[in-house]
Amino acid sequence: MRSTGLAVTLLISALALMACDYRTSPSNLPPALSAMPRGNPVTEFQPGVEDSAAQPSNRPEETELVIADGQRLYHHFNCSGCHASGGGAIGPALMDDEWIYGNSAGNIFWTIIEGRPQGMPAFGGRISEEQVWSLVAYVRSLSNLKDPPPAVPAEGDSVLRGRQVFLEGPCSLCHTIRGTSALATVGPDLTHVASRKTLVGGLPNTRGNLAGWILNPQNIEPETTMPPTPLAPQELHDLLDYLATLE
């Protein structure tokens, strides 16, 4: 009896694994999407705890701007054709607290990308991930689902303060750090700046050289278009701490 039970368990596990395999098999999604961890299985079960692996890492902050963009796209892509203004019609309501496929940002992201049975089309490959994230932010805002406000940087947490210096200061006007609101492409992408061996002109990428470069780049490379950045001492030290985390 016990061995029969074991065999059944194994069979079920194997089937479950196969199902899993099927779900993650390459589809017609663009390469960037098929390389990502996939979303919820297509079942009618409510998700239990959120699968953090299903949360893609390129999610932007849900700012008012992103939500407003999502609202525009919601009508532009005719989501309202089925979901009305969120109250639902042909498709389910989006402003109640019933979520067939989960209400986390990752859940909704995959629902839009993959589509869901009985009518929800797959938008993966048709609209950009950035647009999907805007839609996610807007849909979540309909039921007041918002991320908790970012923690106020604790006194002494120089990395968080440095991040703030970067995002709210002039750096973000020219540079990108993926995963933040800094998306400018005038200067180099600094997402992995701490992994660089050298800075401009072959200078070793050390704290001292980076400090000098930020404060007065023309001393190091007279032709550079990067302007001097007159930071207060504490801002500089915090910023250097933050940049050192970007490996």
Binding site: G201, L203, P204, T206, R207, G208, N209, L210, A211, G212, W213, L215, N216, N219, I220
Partner: peptide, 21 residues
């Protein structure tokens, strides 16, 4: 001095950069 980047902020004889910070 080159490695640590002293010369990125200070003017130092014979250094590749002459910092004025």
């Amino acid at each position: 001095a080159v490695q640590y980047g002293c010369a990125a902020c200070h003017a130092i004889p014979r250094m590749p950069t002459q910092g004025m910070v």
